[in-house]
Write a protein that binds this DNA or RNA. Structure first.
Length: 470
RNA sequence: CGGGGUGUGGCUCAGCUUGGCAGAGCGCUGCGUUCGGGACGCAGAGGUCGUGGGUUCAAAUCCCGCCACCCCGACCA
């Protein structure tokens, strides 16, 4: 008889399944303060890989890392009208420190446009100082009313890029460049998530932005998750913080700024995009452990052979790990690695070794195959590529199967029960957007018919992608 | 902030209606047998029953207050 499932099946209760994966895959726990999160070593290892891949792309895009303080004077937040309105309700404010009440309350950053703007103003004087391209990896705090591990926590980890440009066109092009070359490239190529890119509607725009671009992904249950955003801030913050420069003609000009970020929310997206009833499935390019070499039993030569195979894989550039815990049963260990989503498992036992081979198992399909000892390196690297491609193909298939082109609000409501609906923006409009919002359906982004990002929502043929969202 | 619900070993929960020695499964520790998909046996460790009061010979159980958390909605990376 089969054991009862280790996890609640997705079809029974998707949110419960998500919670089960977080716990059983040892990804994260709730912190002691409401809405906070403890990221466990295995989960943090995945986040570190995300950081490495995103950071590399940010640097290629020309931005440099810096660090700005956690604490921001409360007065800064009040300077930009939209920004205040957007963030006030979710600020954590320090009123006491050092045993006494502070003269001016200090805000724990919900995002850093203001404090970075203050310093950009100091650092930018001439057109030769532009563009100024900054990024920081940091934690931020937003006192959300309802929280869910990784998807929405009071404190989360992210990178926030902040740039200042001489012209609107330059700022606009850079915001789009980040969306394309950093975010979409990372999400598609590394996370194997076929994200949609597009413009946010006025309603969904970042507080203080003139334009917000976003990457949207479809989760396993058909709901949408915003995976990253890139904002054009116009001159809103530049005017308030006086980020200005003298141009070649000697006249003072106000800068145009952008900001953009991705967060630990991507962890939630990864889990809900690729996970199945057996647990997480980590795309090989992201995986902190790509292949685990399991000793089936401590028979003669088995541990040594497994150690040699691990070394060979490491030498072949595979992030491999040896599991030689023979004091724990094979089945238990196999299940644990499966729940953690390690892409490839190599099982080494006396029976295999007698035949000069090992058993290789793919996590994505569950397929098992025998593999000659001499061919392990090549087989595993080949499998890793196949799994990476397979996960992307599977997610793309689901997204396409669950996306419907519709012509009316009613059809959009129906389609959004299982996935995404594409409806002409000319048909929907802000009124239709408000009506759908009553049924918890939102416009995820506006796209051109070919899926590219429209320069304005007034372009003809703009399509609104609507869905229920996390 | 509205509506619903729950607080009992590390985890999931039973026990509460009708007050009477604080339980189960999983996990954990030790020993032995096992070991190719969540092993089995035996022996153990571990809980001021969320919290403060009240009723009672006696409270996890009944009454009152408080706190925390969860789910559904509005807000949101």
């Amino acid at each position: 008889m089969a054991k009862p499932p280790a996890l609640t099946p997705q079809a029974d209760d998707f949110p419960r399944w998500y919670q089960d994966v977080l716990a059983k895959a040892e990804l994260a726990d709730n912190g002691p303060v409401r809405g906070t999160m403890v990221i466990r070593p295995y989960g943090y290892g995945l986040w570190e890989r995300m950081v490495a891949e995103v950071d590399q792309r940010i640097k290629v895009a020309g931005a440099e890392n810096a660090y700005f303080p956690l604490f921001i004077p409360e007065s800064y937040l009040t300077l930009e009208a939209q920004h205040v309105e957007g963030f006030s309700p979710e600020l954590a404010v320090v009123t006491h420190a050092g045993g006494k009440e502070l003269d001016e309350p200090i805000v724990v950053r919900p995002t850093s446009e203001t404090v970075i703007g203050e310093f950009m103003a100091k650092w930018v004087n001439s057109h030769r100082d532009l563009p100024l391209l900054l990024n920081q990896w940091a934690n931020v705090v937003r006192w959300e009313l309802r929280t869910r591990l990784f998807l929405r926590t009071s404190e989360f980890l992210w990178q926030e890029g902040h740039t200042a440009h001489a012209t609107e066109a330059d700022a606009s092009a850079y915001a789009l460049q980040i969306l394309h070359d950093v975010y979409r490239d990372f999400m598609v190529d590394v996370l194997a998530m076929p994200v949609l890119i597009g413009r946010k509607t006025r309603q969904e725009r970042f507080a203080g932005a003139t334009n917000t671009l976003a990457c949207e992904a479809m989760m396993g249950d058909g709901k949408a998750l915003q995976m990253g955003t890139s904002h054009e801030l116009g001159q809103n913050f530049a005017k308030v913080f006086d980020i200005a420069y003298q141009d070649a003609d000697g006249t003072q000009q106000i800068c145009w700024t952008t900001s953009w970020g991705v967060s630990t929310r991507m962890m939630g997206g990864l889990i809900m995009c690729h996970g199945d009833d057996q647990g997480l499935r980590v795309p090989p390019r992201l995986a902190s452990v790509q292949a685990v070499v399991m000793v089936i039993r401590d028979d003669e030569g088995v541990v040594d052979a497994a150690g040699r195979i691990t070394d060979e894989l490491l030498a072949a550039g595979v992030r491999a790990k040896l599991d030689g815990r023979t004091d724990t049963s094979f089945g238990r260990r196999a299940t644990a690695w499966e729940i953690k989503g390690i892409p490839v498992r190599i099982e080494v036992g006396p029976r295999d070794l007698a035949n000069g081979e090992v058993t290789v198992v793919r996590r994505d399909t569950g397929e098992k195959a025998q593999c000659a000892l001499a061919a392990v390196g090549a087989t595993v690297t080949g499998l890793l590529d196949a799994i990476q491609a397979g996960l992307l193909a599977e997610a793309t298939q689901r997204r396409d199967d669950r996306t419907a082109d519709v012509a009316t609000l009613d059809e959009a409501r129906e389609a959004a029960q299982v996935g995404f609906a594409r409806i002409p923006w000319a048909v929907l409009g802000e009124e239709g957007e408000a009506m759908l919002a009553r049924d918890a359906i939102t416009v995820r982004c506006l796209q051109r018919p070919d899926g590219s990002v429209p320069a304005s929502e007034d372009e003809p043929d703009v399509v609104a992608v609507v869905a229920r969202a996390y």
